[in-house]
Design a protein around this nucleic acid. Structure first.
Lengths: 206, 206
DNA sequence: GCCCAAATCTGCACAGTGCGCAACTAATGC
DNA sequence: GCATTAGTTGCGCACTGTGCAGATTTGGGC
């Protein structure tokens, strides 16, 4: 007669399980025999499901990989819109990213590296990832526009800022993974955003 | 017995002609009946070629559209590397873009708008375009790294700058087209790059 | 415990796609 | 002229995404 924490139902647990099985099968096979040489049927079979089921979960092969590492720009938007309005824009942005990414980024590190390596080595996956980022970018633009709110929502600024920031996050993440840094990713990201907010001054001599 | 200006041979002219026919058929049909409802066979037939021939010219349907509006970042790279080394980096970058884009952008304005509209309305094309931009981005990164050349080629800075700039160009171009500005695109672009180099200061109040 | 409704999985079929291959045609160089 | 070469075409093949219908499993009321 425990207090029943209203855990997910069996249906939902099964669903999550096959989903996870499909994803990790995709990662494993992709890294093992190359992405292009891995068919949907292979992945489904390795996960104990049918080809048709795979496409019930994911719109495409790439989708199964890219979903994991999706930029959570919608969360950043929420954070931006709910924060105090008198904070300077860039300060608010950096705070929002620091908040969102330090909370969510603590997922299974092993698989995350495998995904990154797979994406790095596969043009089709890079394309899918960037496309997803750009789609999410609209969220960030909306958050920035809402914060300026001086009728500038149709202007160039929010879109430009969102695009620049979104790419900054992705490139910084790739760098952080490639260099196998042990410091938290949030630090690298915050540094990059600071550089961008300074106008990307050239590092040393020139 | 004219002086034979060594114009392109008949083969090359034919090739260019079918290529152009395929491209404009793709644009026309795509805008007319929707991109997804347009098959490669349709395009090829409309251009007076076979389905197989289409794929001799383009790797995919999207490729035929995206090639036209590809960011010529390789040219920017060349310009960057050949320019005087004592000019400040950002100044050199803006000059390079001004140079490259004022020369190359003077193509058929009508078709360019049609392409933009088609891409805007088609997620698959947006994805393809972004992917092409990101691929080209590497060129720009190499140019920037070469200019700094202080062993910083493996560092974060060139990649970050290239990514940010590449997206800036694309977003500015979309804005310029959407607003149907009559001023030259180069002006819009230069303004955006200037804003980025200033750290994207928020426009008005905030 | 039992049974129904809803959710989920699966096989099948179908239209598209990208590409390898082998014939065929047209342009080029000598 | 004629051999060489580039370019086009038709055919076939494996793979993909999706609609549809039947089977299977789960959840919840009785």
């Amino acid at each position: 007669m425990e207090s029943q924490p209203v855990g997910p139902s069996l249906r939902q647990r099964n669903r999550a399980a096959t989903r996870a099985a499909l994803i990790s099968a995709a990662i494993r096979l992709g890294n093992q025999r190359g992405w292009d040489a891995t068919s949907v049927s292979d992945i489904a079979a390795a996960a104990g499901a049918s080809r048709r089921t795979f496409n019930n979960y994911f719109a495409s092969k790439e989708d199964a990989i890219v979903r994991l590492g999706a930029l959570r720009l919608a969360e950043v938007r929420e954070f931006l819109e709910s924060a105090a309005g008198d904070e300077p824009l860039w300060s608010a942005i950096r705070t929002a990213f620091r908040e969102v990414f330090s909370a969510a980024e603590a997922l299974d590190d092993e698989q995350r590296r495998a995904v990154a390596e797979l994406v790095r080595a596969t043009p089709a996956l890079q394309a899918a990832q960037i496309a997803a980022d750009v789609a999410a970018e609209k969220e960030l633009a909306a958050g920035i526009a809402a914060r300026l709110e001086a009728g500038a929502s149709g202007g160039l600024y929010p879109r430009l800022a969102a695009a620049v920031i979104s790419r900054t996050v992705r490139v910084s993440y790739q760098y952080w993974l490639a260099k196998r840094l042990t410091t938290p990713f949030v630090d690298t990201l915050d540094h990059s955003l600071g550089q961008v907010a300074l106008g990307l001054p050239p590092p040393a001599g020139s």
